[in-house]
Simulated scan of single mutants.
Amino acid sequence: MPLSWAEARETAWRAGYEARGAAAELPFDAAAGSALAAPLAAASDLPAFPTSAVDAWAVAGEGPWRITGAASLAGSVPAPMGPGEAVKIATGAQVPEGCEGLIRLEHAEIDGESVTGPAEREWRETGEEAKAGEELLPTGTPISAPVIGLAAAAGHATLPAHPRPSARMVVFGDELLTSGVSREGRVRDSLGPMVPHMLDAAGARVAAEVLGPVADTLDEHVAALRTATAEADLTCTTGGTMVGPVDHLHAALKAVGADYVVNTVSVRPGFPMLLARTAEGRFIAGLPGNPQSAVIAVVTLVVPLLAGLRGLPLPGLRSITLAEHVPGRGPATHLALVDGNGNRLAHHGSAMLRGLANAAGFAVVEPESEAHAGRRVPLATVPGVAS
């Protein structure tokens, strides 16, 4: 029995989350895009010492103040100040011991060797943002660029996170060409060049070499799956998800000892997608051979799976207001290509990519319903596609 589209997303995510690898302290580049596997705490006070918020004169005691000493610059420890003294200080520099106020340069009046003006406490106090040991972010926080910046400022060089899962692409089909134009009954493969970029954008560490095209025999399918799953946490295959005369994927899955996590989804286009898992815990995502259907399988199964494997929550859906009517597809969820203005795109057949190349994503029309112009509906985006 096919799973509903929503249930398939949840099932794929849950399978990934339960199979996520052990967390480790990872360099920032490796941790980016995952989730914190432990709380992030400040390794020191933040800031670690009082720092000027402005370019100014640092002054001590009563004015007017006598200009003395070298300027206090970022990256150095200034000499202590005595009453009646003034030294220049740069934004971000450590405030000298004994300083009682800062006069902004633009507010200062210089008379020979003395300076006057309104003095304020315009500096960040030690620990103003966080005290040493204070929790900054909880477990499960997605590791974004600002999170990495905060971690660095707080004294860290690594973050506790689940590593990027490795992925391998396997392309099935005697009919596929890897160069030139379609000819003599054979067609140019579009999924081998396209899908790895989507996997990378969705958080996988993708092997550069695509395996295939693999010949349409059971032995070759089995050999390809064994090669790929020996190396990768996730293997994505293209084609063979039905039960036609050269569709060997299901038999190959049985031969390598893989069990189904999801076997077909009630969605149009793209329903003959699948997700399986080997006894060793490696995942195999079977994408339909039609390009748009394959992308829908990536959106439905692979993106949630990779999120789970990295300790992230199930990816949320955006929303969009439709500019025109989008029909339903009976008991199946309809994923309809739309542009950023909510217009349904032409060239939206499951074998076509022209519409997808101009799309903001797929408008989600629930089973047994339709969506009229002006209605706001969920939008499933495609990894690697700018929105």
Results as ranks from 00 to 15, higher is better:
I296S: 02
P269R: 07
R376M: 15
N341D: 15
V338I: 14
R318E: 13
P313Y: 04
A357S: 15
P272N: 12
L312C: 09
V298Q: 06
P291K: 05
F362V: 08
P304N: 04
A279T: 08
V365M: 07
R376I: 14
A363N: 13
F271G: 11
L337F: 12
R375A: 15
L337M: 12
L322F: 10
R282L: 02
V302A: 07
L335G: 10
A363K: 14
P272M: 14
R318W: 01
G328V: 01
V295Y: 01
M352H: 10
V377A: 14
E280A: 14
N358V: 03
M273Y: 05
A380E: 13
G361A: 08
N358A: 14
G374T: 13
P269E: 06
L379Q: 09
R268I: 13
R344N: 00
V326Q: 01
I284L: 08
G270C: 12
P313L: 02
G340N: 12
L314N: 08
I284N: 01
S387N: 11
P327V: 07
P383M: 03
G281Q: 09
S350D: 15
L353R: 04
A363L: 11
V385R: 11
L353F: 06
G349I: 05
I296A: 12
A279C: 08
L345P: 00
G340H: 14
I284A: 00
P327K: 10
P378I: 07
P327S: 11
A351Y: 09
A294Q: 06
R375C: 11
V365W: 02
G311D: 02
N343P: 00
R310S: 04
L305A: 01
L335H: 10
V295G: 04
L337G: 05
L353H: 06
L306E: 04
A279S: 13
